[in-house]
Computed example of a mutant assay.
Amino acid sequence: MSHENCIFCKIAAGQIPGKRVFEDDQLIVIHDINPAAKLHLLVIPKRHIETLADCLPENPADQALLGRMLALAPNLAREQGHGYADGAGGFRVVINTGPDGGQEVYHLHMHVLAGPRPWKRMG
């Protein structure tokens, strides 16, 4: 998919609406339009990266971006009423990569899911 036709790039640019939960200079977070769980957020980098496999371990910018995405997940879950504390609650984070990994949109994104066993609906 070309960068110009990327739906997540268009959402990040404000060309397509998305129910935003969070935004900073690197990331946007929106509600998934086809949720697989009571809470289903998408953490999307503003920079177009097709897959997790395109992130390089020796690239400090990629390391920082992936760390930022993961570090944000607990706060997002907690703010949406699905945090983990004192052995109760919890959430799941998923990054699908490539066709065999279940990736449907070729722009790196992370799913934050919570609610009663949200992974039962995930393939």
Results as ranks from 00 to 15, higher is better:
Met1Ser: 10
Ser2Val: 04
Ser2Cys: 05
His3Ala: 08
Glu4Leu: 08
Asn5Asp: 12
Cys6Trp: 00
Cys6His: 01
Cys6Asp: 02
Ile7Asn: 04
Phe8Ile: 11
Cys9Phe: 01
Lys10Ser: 00
Ile11Asn: 01
Ile11His: 06
Ile11Ser: 00
Ala12Gly: 08
Gly14Leu: 12
Gln15Glu: 00
Gln15His: 01
Pro17Asp: 01
Pro17Thr: 02
Gly18Lys: 00
Gly18Ala: 03
Gly18Arg: 00
Lys19Gln: 12
Lys19Ile: 12
Arg20Tyr: 15
Arg20Cys: 13
Arg20Asn: 08
Val21Lys: 01
Phe22Tyr: 15
Glu23Pro: 02
Asp25Lys: 15
Asp25Asn: 12
Asp25Phe: 01
Leu27His: 06
Ile28Gly: 03
Ile28Trp: 03
Val29Met: 03
Ile30Ala: 02
His31Thr: 07
His31Val: 06
His31Ala: 04
Ile33Val: 15
Asn34Asp: 11
Pro35Glu: 08
Pro35Gly: 07
Ala36His: 13
His40Asp: 12
Leu41Cys: 06
Leu42Arg: 09
Leu42Ile: 06
Leu42Phe: 05
Val43Asn: 03
Val43Met: 02
Ile44Tyr: 00
Pro45Lys: 12
Lys46Ile: 10
Lys46Cys: 05
Lys46Glu: 10
Arg47Ile: 09
Ile49Glu: 13
Ile49Lys: 01
Thr51His: 11
Thr51Arg: 11
Leu52Pro: 02
Ala53Ile: 09
Ala53Gln: 14
Asp54Val: 09
Asp54Thr: 10
Asp54Trp: 07
Cys55Asn: 12
Pro57Tyr: 04
Glu58Ala: 13
Glu58Met: 10
Asn59Thr: 12
Pro60Trp: 06
Pro60Arg: 10
Ala61Val: 12
Asp62Arg: 15
Ala64Lys: 14
Ala64Thr: 15
Leu65Asp: 14
Leu66Asn: 12
Leu66Tyr: 07
Leu66Ala: 11
Arg68Asn: 13
Met69His: 04
Met69Leu: 05
Leu70Met: 11
Leu72Pro: 04
Leu72Asp: 06
Ala73Ile: 14
Ala73Met: 12
Asn75Gln: 10
Asn75Arg: 10
Asn75Thr: 12
Leu76Arg: 04
Arg78Ile: 01
Glu79Ser: 09
Glu79Leu: 06
Gln80Trp: 00
Gln80Tyr: 07
Gly81Tyr: 05
His82Ser: 05
Tyr84Phe: 10
Tyr84Arg: 09
Asp86Lys: 06
Gly87Leu: 06
Ala88Arg: 11
Ala88Tyr: 06
Ala88Cys: 07
Gly90Ile: 04
Gly90Met: 03
Arg92Gln: 05
Arg92Cys: 03
Arg92His: 13
Val93Ile: 08
Ile95Tyr: 06
Thr97Ser: 07
Gly98Asp: 04
Gly98Thr: 02
Gly101Ile: 10
Glu104Tyr: 08
Glu104Gln: 15
Val105Arg: 02
Val105Asp: 01
Val105Trp: 02
Tyr106Phe: 15
His107Tyr: 04
Leu108Lys: 11
Leu108Ala: 13
His109Leu: 09
His109Arg: 09
His109Phe: 05
Met110Asp: 02
Met110His: 08
Val112Ser: 05
Leu113Val: 09
Leu113Gly: 00
Leu113Cys: 09
Ala114Val: 14
Ala114Ile: 14
Ala114Pro: 10
Gly115Phe: 00
Gly115Cys: 11
Pro116Val: 14
Pro118His: 13
Pro118Trp: 07
Met122Cys: 10
Met122Glu: 14
Gly123Glu: 14
